[in-house]
Write a protein that binds this DNA or RNA. Structure first.
Length: 479
RNA sequence: GCCCGCAUCGUCUAGCGGUCAGGACACCACCCUUUCAAGGUGGUAACCGGGGUUCGACUCCCCGUGCGGGUACCA
């Protein structure tokens, strides 16, 4: 099996396009075949400088390495269409010779008027073949320098193919336009280029998004005209946003690389994308890359479009974070805890790992341990369900415990504080919240006692005393 | 307008004529617990509508409806 991903360099990749790339990659890896990357830059007007590099970076980051393509030599190169224009012209010539294509000098205005008229008459919009019946004149016009395009002469009859995810799909050729193959600037259109490239690159399975279904008959007509065996077609469903509309750049679909910035793991993103339109058939849903390669088959792709659910990604990201060996997490956290030492991260990881949804959460969670923080009025202290007397008792017990026992025996300390809380009649779970606020500035955070051990006795005592002081200040006007 | 595709809980999905329609996310409750998480247990929640076919339809067929896509010298 040979599959390919053929993006056009018109901007960064979003989840929708990368999901198609992932399916192609997985199919190839599962079968032990090759995955090729090809850049389809035949439209110089839509080209966005730098996006090609972005595409390569995205694929590399996700671990979807290609066997042939840009930066990787292969026997079927070059893998950038703008470098292959000569091949397209040669093949176009074959089509002309065989009568499968013809030149056309119709102006954009005429074409537009023609379509308006067809629409008015409830007919399918397609080229009326005016130039087909006057090829001699067209030849003369061309040699006089008039711009011309080469059109596919769509054969009569019907076109049918067995799509790997849709089953039998068929079209009446009469509804299909005589597609432009060579633009007047000499560049091929997508339709000519894909067919020529997929054939020359020996692609066995064309895996692409289902918006290509209507143009597949054109491609099949081309394969027939060249007398080539067509590949299997695999049209995968669209990925929709929460609004039910197809993900697209112009609707603000996120650059996949941004997810890295936000603290998502490549393995989690890959896992989440694989589950969009594909299922293993079992109840398992948490997969590593290699497990996916093992189980993925094109036949199990679900044909309906899928809504991308960020909550699902969040969940999977947490799972993948917990799947990571501690030392790998220490590495992964470097970006999100800038300036932290490896040792610092090593002691933070046990506290962080069960509490992170994204790696970026580490920064928020660890902040009170890495920096001093200031009290402000937004901090409720003592916190809900804790009265001042309990807060005082708990903090005093904690201070005393640190002063006398240090931070070596957290268990003993915990018991000591619990006892103090129970003395005041409070539930330990509530009372402890006062301690959290005192040390971390928030009632919800990393384990306090461990946090204190991390910041050390001196800083701990300092924070506890400040909090204790605050209780006194409050107490005065109250009594 | 014309053409094509799709249709199971809110979301992702399993199902391939006979199931109490299963799982996961999210949500709710409880348990565990030094907070919050993580983890565990349980719960709420779905076959778009109408006709057929069949002893029997979520499943097969037709028609609607809804949604998506195509209809370019864009991919």
């Amino acid at each position: 099996m040979r599959t390919r991903f053929a993006p056009s360099p018109t901007g960064p990749l979003h989840v929708g396009s990368v999901r198609t790339a992932l399916f192609s990659w997985l199919a190839a890896r599962h079968a032990g075949g090759e995955f090729v990357l090809r850049i389809e830059d035949t439209d110089q007007e839509r080209y966005i400088p730098g996006s090609e590099a972005l595409i390569l970076e995205t694929l590399q980051w996700l671990g979807l390495e290609w066997d042939e393509g840009p930066e990787v030599d292969g026997p079927h190169g070059p893998y950038i269409q703008s470098l292959r224009t000569e091949m397209y012209r040669e093949h176009a010539e074959i089509l002309v010779q065989r009568g499968a294509a013809y030149w056309c000098t119709c102006t954009a205005e005429r074409l537009a008027a023609m379509r308006d008229e067809q629409r008015r008459r409830s007919e399918p919009t397609r080229y009326d073949r005016r130039c087909l019946t006057r090829q001699d004149e067209v030849d003369a016009e061309r040699s006089a320098g008039m711009p011309a395009v080469l059109r596919l002469r769509m054969p009569d009859g019907t076109t049918e193919w067995d799509d790997l995810v849709r089953g039998a799909v068929s079209f009446d050729n009469a509804d299909i336009d005589d597609q432009v193959l060579l633009k007047s600037d000499g560049f091929p259109t997508y339709h000519l280029a894909v067919v020529v490239d997929d054939h020359l690159m020996r692609i066995s399975h064309v895996i692409r998004s289902d918006e290509w279904i209507p143009s597949t008959p054109k491609h099949l007509a081309l394969y027939a005209a060249f007398e080539w065996t067509p590949p299997r077609f695999v049209h995968v469903p669209a990925v929709l946003g929460a609004d039910g509309l197809k993900l697209s750049k112009r609707r603000g679909a996120r650059n996949v690389l941004d997810y890295g910035e936000m603290g998502y793991l490549p393995s989690a993103i890959v896992n989440a994308m694989a589950l969009l339109g594909w299922s293993s058939g079992s109840d398992e849903e948490l997969f590593t890359q290699s497990q996916l390669c093992e189980r993925f088959t094109l036949e199990r792709i679900h044909p309906a479009p899928a809504v991308f659910d960020p909550a699902r990604l969040d969940h999977l990201n947490g799972q993948h974070i917990r799947l990571l060996p501690a030392e790998a997490l220490v590495e992964a956290l470097e970006y999100h805890l800038p300036g932290s030492s490896k040792d610092t991260r090593r002691s933070l990881v046990p506290m962080l790992r069960d509490r992170m949804v994204t790696l970026a959460d580490a920064a928020t969670l660890a902040d009170p341990l890495l920096h001093e923080w200031d009290w402000d009025d937004a901090i409720e202290f003592p916190p809900r369900k804790v009265d001042a007397a309990t807060a005082r008792a708990v903090i005093d017990a904690c201070i005393d415990s640190v002063q006398h026992g240090g931070l070596g025996d957290l268990d003993a300390m915990r018991e000591r504080i619990k006892a103090a809380a129970e003395n005041t009649g409070a539930k330990p779970r509530d009372a402890f919240r006062a301690l959290y606020v005192a040390v971390l500035g928030t009632p919800a955070g990393l384990p306090v006692l461990e946090s204190m051990a991390f910041i050390g006795a001196e800083r701990s005592l300092e924070r506890l005393r400040t909090a204790r002081q605050r209780l006194n200040v409050r107490k005065i006007p109250a009594s």
